[in-house]
Amino acid sequence: MEMSKDLVAASATPLVLAILAEGDSYGYAIIKRVAELSGGHLHWTDGMLYPVLHRLERHGLIAAKWGASESGRSRKYYRTTKEGRAQLALQRQQWEVVDDTLRGIWLHACPA
């Protein structure tokens, strides 16, 4: 299914924060988890994830450190911070508001 770019972009931040709240992770694993969670519907361009991660890091919502991967290459691992968790809670509230509103009208207008 073709997703609107704005929707994908808007959902990127809460999704990344939530995935990192589950545990520390790195770029590729985040993308795999997103594909897994969305059942294959959300396809993030790999390269686009990294500017998002850098922006979140700049705002202090996540923290990064270099570690070693299984194959021995160095790899950047990300983890969430306190501000990140607070922001996640905030975003969750906002999305729930939107969700409830839309559900309300869809149930009424188009019972599907």
Partner: peptide, 17 residues
């Protein structure tokens, strides 16, 4: 430089998968 390293690591992970 550091970003290039990161992206290359991602590429290699993807290739491995």
């Amino acid at each position: 430089g550091a970003d290039v390293e990161e992206l290359e690591g991602h590429l290699r992970d993807q290739m491995a998968a």
